[in-house]
């Protein structure tokens, strides 16, 4: 029941912003401010992530869910807001307030991220083993034999055969590339794993395999995971608790079974009724 991560009033605004759109109670046109024309991709999002749970974030394109993930992984700088990690200074320091060097250290050691597009998370011309090893090197490992063993182990766990560890991900199928990303993301046993639309665009059977592996890994390592998807079926399969995003804001939040069977907000109801 321990809190692993806390996000407070996170906002990402593209454009100047003004008093109107800064007040999250004021309605926007989708996510664009009618006064200053700024795009408020993420508006005052607050959420918590607890020990060993999978939190689903569901929403459609433009809901801000990917922007949220990127902000948490330091890929983009939020306009305002704070976030705390239990594993970083006991959750007492806002990770957005520290130096970029510190943020790198947090990213390398305490976070894992799997991008929708493998090109963003992997070096396509380096061996898949090398890709995973880079995360280990970033955490300070300097023994090649040990790293080779660990990377082979991680990749094997993701069902990537040993004879392909030396091959670059460029040669792999989409599902396999995602599995390499997952191996890399969990290499340092981070307390938090961020998954951004990881199975979108994959064939169904491949999707199923990747999701199964994610579930297995989460149970074994007791990692807390945030899963972002526009696909409610993926959310249903993975997450215990779900947050629904629309136009940069959270419109509903609760147990996944409650969201699916007793949705309160009109948008959640629309989503649920759209399930094929």
């Amino acid at each position: 029941m321990d809190q692993i991560m806390k996000v407070n009033e996170l906002s990402v605004v593209y454009g100047k912003g003004c008093d109107y759109c800064r007040d999250s109670n004021n309605p926007l046109e989708k996510n664009r401010c009618p006064h200053c024309m700024a795009v408020c991709a993420v508006r005052d999002i607050s959420l918590e992530l607890y020990d060993s749970e999978i939190l689903g974030v569901v929403g459609e394109s433009g809901s801000g869910k990917t922007t949220l993930m990127k902000a948490l992984y330091f890929d983009i700088i939020p306009t305002k807001g704070s976030a705390y990690l239990a594993a970083y200074n006991n959750g007492e320091t806002d990770i957005f307030s520290v130096s970029s060097q510190q943020q790198r250290a947090i990213r390398n050691n305490l976070l894992g991220m799997v991008y929708q597009n493998p090109v963003m998370g992997l070096l396509m011309n380096y061996s898949s083993g090398g890709n995973v090893a880079q995360k280990l090197i970033a955490a300070g490992h300097r023994n090649v034999a040990a790293m080779q063993e660990r990377t082979a182990q991680l990749l094997d766990h993701m069902e990537i055969p040993l004879n392909r560890v030396k091959e670059p991900p460029r040669n792999f199928s989409g599902g396999m590339q995602q599995r390499v990303q997952i191996s890399k993301a969990i290499a340092n046993n981070p307390p938090v794993l961020l998954l951004d639309e990881v199975t979108t665009g994959l064939d169904l059977s491949v999707q199923a395999k990747v999701l199964d592996l994610i579930r297995m890994v989460q149970k074994q390592l007791n990692i807390s995971v945030i899963v972002v998807s526009h696909d409610l079926a993926v959310i249903r399969m993975l997450s215990d608790r779900t947050v629904v995003m629309l136009d940069g804001q959270i419109v509903e939040h609760g147990f996944t079974d409650q969201i699916l069977e007793d949705p309160q907000h009109w948008f959640t109801q629309t989503l649920v009724h759209s399930l094929i």
Partner: peptide, 9 residues
């Protein structure tokens, strides 16, 4: 039953 279990609010 669902209200008790929390599936329904």
């Amino acid at each position: 039953l669902k209200c008790i279990y929390g599936t329904y609010l």
